[in-house]
Structure formats: C-alpha cells, structure tokens
Design a protein around this nucleic acid. Structure first.
Lengths: 193, 193
DNA sequence: ATCATTTCTTGTCATTTGGCAAGATGCCGC
DNA sequence: GCGGCATCTTGCCAAATGACAAGAAATGAT
C-alpha cells in the first residue's frame, strides 16, 4: 500500500532528488490487476504509465498465423507501458497481461506529459526509461541473431530466473523464438549436463 | 549544400513550425564522410546527432566470435545516432560506417540538450525519433522470431530495396540473421519463381 | 589492362529446429 | 476427490540453416 518502492525507484535513477521523488510518487494512483487480467489489450490506445510493485506481467502480440508471441516479461520494480501506442496515441498491437496477481502505481498520458513539461528532472527520468528499453531490446535482437536457442535459454535462466517460476514454458518458448517442443528438449539436454 | 532537406524533415514531423524548422536547421553543421569511413567507432562516446542527407550507412557490432553483425541500415532522410551511447554518455558497442560517400548535418549532445531545454517542440521531435526507432526495432524483432529467413528477405527487398544497391550481401545476411551462403541460396530460389 | 582481393555462388554434408502426435503430469472448478 | 483442460515431455521424421571448401565473378589499386 505504501509508495516507498515507487519513490525509491525515482530517486535511485540519480536523476530525481528525494523530495521530488516523493512529490512525483504522490501523483501516481494505485492499480490492481488480478492474474490473467489485462493492463492493455490490442487496438486500445495505451494510456497508463505503470510502475509494477508486486507480481509479474508479460506482453504479447499475434503473428500472421494467429499465434501468441510473448514479446516481453516484466518483474517488480519496472516501468511498464507500450511505448508506441502511448506516445503516438495509436492503437496498440500488443497485449499486456498479468501472469500473477499484480499491484502497481500509474499515471495517465496527460498527467505524464504535464509532469514532463513542468519537471525537467522527470523528463530526464522518462527519457532514461525509454533509452533503457531500447538498449535492452537491441541486446536481445543481437543475441537472437547470433546465439543458438540453447545459449539464449541459458542467458534468460541466468538473468531472469524468477520468470520461470511465474510464466508457463510455452510463453518463454515464444519469447526465445522457438517452439515449446524445442524448449522442452533444450531443458532436457541441459539438465543432463 | 543547402539545408532544405533538413528543415523540411523537421517540418514534416508536424511537430515543428516552418519558421522554427529553419531556425533549428541553422544550428546544424555539415558533416561529410567518405565511403568506408566511420561516423562512430566502438568504445567512443557518441556525440553526433546526424541527419543523413545523401548516401547510405550501416551500423554493426561484433558477436562473441568476433564476426561483424550489421544491426541497421540508414538511407537519406534519416536521423542517425547511437541512442544508448549518446544519451547515457557511455562507450558505444556499435560502429557506424558509410557504405557510400555521405553528406549530412549534425549537432552535438550538448547542443541537442540545450535545444531540448529551450524548445518543447524540438523535444517532442526528439522523442518521436526515439519512439520511431524503438517501434521499428520491435517490428524487426517480431519478424525475426516468427518469420523464415526467406520471408524476412522478401520483406527487406520490398521495404528497403535501395539497400541492395549499396550494401554487400554479406552485410545484408548478418542483418537478416543468416549466413551469406544461405542468403545466396534464398536469392537463387526466389529468382526461379 | 592486370593482378590481387573481396564478394558471391554452389556442392556436400552436419546440425538445429520444427511439425505432428501420443502420452504423462499438473492444475482448477465443482 | 473427480473429471477435464492446459501444460510439458518424448519419439519420429522433415525442413531450414550452417560449416566448410572450391570456384566464378566483380571490384579496386597500381
């Protein structure tokens, strides 16, 4: 119920003073999402900029054949929002769904923009979140292109082990760009080693 | 030699008035890069925010085995900068190289930030560039995960045909995430159809 | 124009990954 | 606790892609 994590998150960015972090946190409202429910669904315009305090979420899109492809996983302590839809005010191509019961703090597009206008520090914070997301995606793109499925699996296991406690393997498989069958075999092969 | 393209580019974003577009363009300086020379090399801190007016460029990184992996192609009329290095002031993991003789217009990090502070419209423009890059990368990530190499090749051929006139196939192969051998076979197979 | 180097293609074979189906296991609602 | 559904594993075979090597074609330097 407390906004401690949220204001600490702002402050830890080193872009926002402690007092401003608290002021900022004051503007956020609570959001509770039950397991399997959605923060955002396809064709809607994303209007929530969410700090995830508890629980796990995933983003997914559909490919041409209509299969769900998991595009991202989110753990507590992260900002979640669909960048393109949120900033361009266009219909989202992605869905964001709770993998577990979730709690967090959000503001709307309008509120965010007002804060951006009035607080240069928060603007910097917003930019750094955007840049961080971009960099992570770039890293993932490179690893998808250069590494084998087994290597990508091992990396995920090392960097985000909690995901395996909260997401079904079929979601992890599409995130890694392989079928659940292949993932199962990779796991079997690695556990023998 | 004229900054027409540059100011038109600002104005066409619909975020910047015509007069401000011209004022903005005034702040940019000319940059000429000969074929095969670099806009940015690994381990340097990116300090140039470049509008490419003429010519083609590519970005590349090295994988674990030391192979060059092309991460992006740039055509005239695009903004080019290495996002993470530029905004975080960290050493770049990427190189940006001219595929042909190039000409463009640039400002430095400091100049860009000054403009961002004083001109909200330019800030919006900057954000929209960032969001655009992010969205494109997301689309590419999804297609890399869900489509076959042949489908990705066909898409690239349709969306960026000029690249094939200016980049060697081995660069295009690593961009698509395949070997030059496979790319050659895909081209052979498609030309038979 | 010539030579050297890089780029591109093609052949053979190995490896990775997928498709499909069957069975095993686990989880949820009643 | 039971039935049903989703999840995960495994077997068999096919398809996609890679590794390596040889040769052809294009390009660049002098």
């Amino acid at each position: 119920m407390s906004k401690e994590h949220l204001s600490a998150f702002f402050h830890n960015s080193n872009l926002v003073s402690l007092s401003m972090a608290k002021e900022l946190a004051d503007r956020f409202e609570q959001k509770v999402i039950a397991k399997n429910h959605f923060l955002l669904t396809e064709d809607k315009i994303a209007d929530e900029y969410l700090f995830l305090d508890k629980g796990y979420m995933r983003a997914f899109a559909f490919d041409i054949e209509g299969n769900e492809i998991t595009t991202n996983f989110y753990a507590p302590g992260q900002i979640i929002f669909e960048v393109a839809s949120f900033f361009n005010r266009t219909r989202s191509k992605e869905n964001i769904q709770a993998l577990t019961d979730c709690e967090g703090w959000f503001i709307t597009y309008k509120q965010l923009n007002d804060l951006f206008h009035s607080l240069p520090e928060f603007r910097e914070f917003g930019r750094s979140m955007l840049v961080k997301g971009f960099s992570e995606l770039k890293t993932r793109m490179l690893s998808t292109i250069t590494e084998t499925a087994e290597e990508r699996y091992a990396t995920l296991l090392k960097t985000k082990p909690e995901i395996f406690q909260h997401a079904p393997l079929k979601n992890i498989a599409t995130y890694l760009g392989i079928t659940d069958t292949s993932l199962s075999r990779i796991r079997a092969a690695l556990s023998k080693k």
